[in-house]
Simulated scan of single mutants.
Amino acid sequence: MNHDSYTDYYLADILRETKVIALVGASPNPERPSNRVMAFLLRKGYRVIPVNPGQAGKQIHGQTVYARLADIPEPIDMVDVFRAAVALPGLVDEVLALDPLPKAIWGQLSVRDDAAARRAEAAGIKVVMDRCPAIEYPRLVG
């Protein structure tokens, strides 16, 4: 897939089908984008599970933080990535080890690695990179 642009349908379909989001790189700091996006997604009715090894066992926005994706005790629909782009290949490795696999990986603004995306897509996972669901949701879903 060409990750230079996405159809509105592709993005809206992911946002509508998603119910449970693992937010990797979640921060308890209200000034951080990951914290604000997590609050937005919670307000929109998503179940958002924060992932941050330095915060594991604590809570962000009333949600228990997990150290790794593998520690989450329920299936995930989407992995929202607030990490540097260089972390995406390793994160795709973690995602591919999950059972069941999530339906989508969503890389936040500036998070892009085309080779990692191809590996996820080869496993049947939809990939969005360099986009923010908190920007796309109001535009596409309402």
Score class of each variant (00 low, 15 high):
1 M>W: 03
1 M>A: 15
2 N>I: 00
3 H>D: 00
4 D>L: 07
4 D>H: 15
6 Y>E: 01
8 D>S: 13
8 D>G: 08
9 Y>C: 06
10 Y>G: 09
11 L>D: 00
13 D>P: 07
13 D>C: 07
15 L>Q: 04
16 R>D: 08
17 E>L: 12
17 E>T: 14
18 T>M: 06
18 T>W: 01
20 V>G: 06
20 V>S: 12
21 I>A: 11
22 A>Q: 11
23 L>D: 04
23 L>H: 08
23 L>A: 11
27 S>A: 10
28 P>I: 06
30 P>T: 15
33 P>T: 12
36 R>Q: 15
38 M>Q: 15
38 M>C: 10
41 L>A: 12
41 L>Y: 04
42 L>Y: 06
45 G>S: 10
46 Y>E: 05
48 V>R: 10
49 I>L: 14
50 P>W: 05
50 P>Q: 10
51 V>N: 02
53 P>T: 02
55 Q>C: 14
56 A>S: 10
57 G>T: 02
57 G>W: 06
61 H>E: 09
62 G>T: 10
62 G>R: 03
63 Q>T: 09
64 T>N: 09
66 Y>W: 12
67 A>R: 01
67 A>Q: 01
67 A>H: 00
67 A>P: 02
70 A>L: 10
74 E>H: 07
77 D>T: 10
79 V>L: 08
79 V>M: 08
81 V>L: 05
83 R>S: 04
83 R>I: 03
84 A>I: 09
84 A>S: 14
87 A>T: 07
89 P>G: 11
89 P>W: 02
89 P>Q: 09
92 V>R: 05
93 D>C: 07
93 D>T: 12
94 E>L: 06
94 E>Y: 11
94 E>I: 01
96 L>I: 13
98 L>Y: 11
99 D>M: 08
99 D>R: 10
100 P>Y: 11
101 L>E: 08
102 P>Q: 10
103 K>T: 15
103 K>W: 09
103 K>R: 15
103 K>L: 14
104 A>K: 07
104 A>Y: 05
105 I>M: 06
105 I>Q: 00
106 W>S: 01
106 W>F: 14
107 G>E: 00
108 Q>E: 03
108 Q>A: 01
110 S>W: 13
110 S>I: 12
112 R>F: 00
114 D>L: 01
116 A>D: 12
117 A>W: 00
117 A>T: 00
117 A>F: 00
118 R>G: 03
119 R>W: 02
120 A>W: 02
122 A>N: 13
122 A>K: 15
123 A>H: 12
123 A>I: 12
123 A>P: 13
124 G>A: 09
125 I>H: 08
128 V>Q: 04
131 R>P: 11
131 R>E: 10
132 C>Q: 05
132 C>R: 03
134 A>T: 01
138 P>L: 03
139 R>V: 08
139 R>Y: 05
141 V>W: 05
141 V>Q: 03
142 G>I: 07
142 G>Y: 09
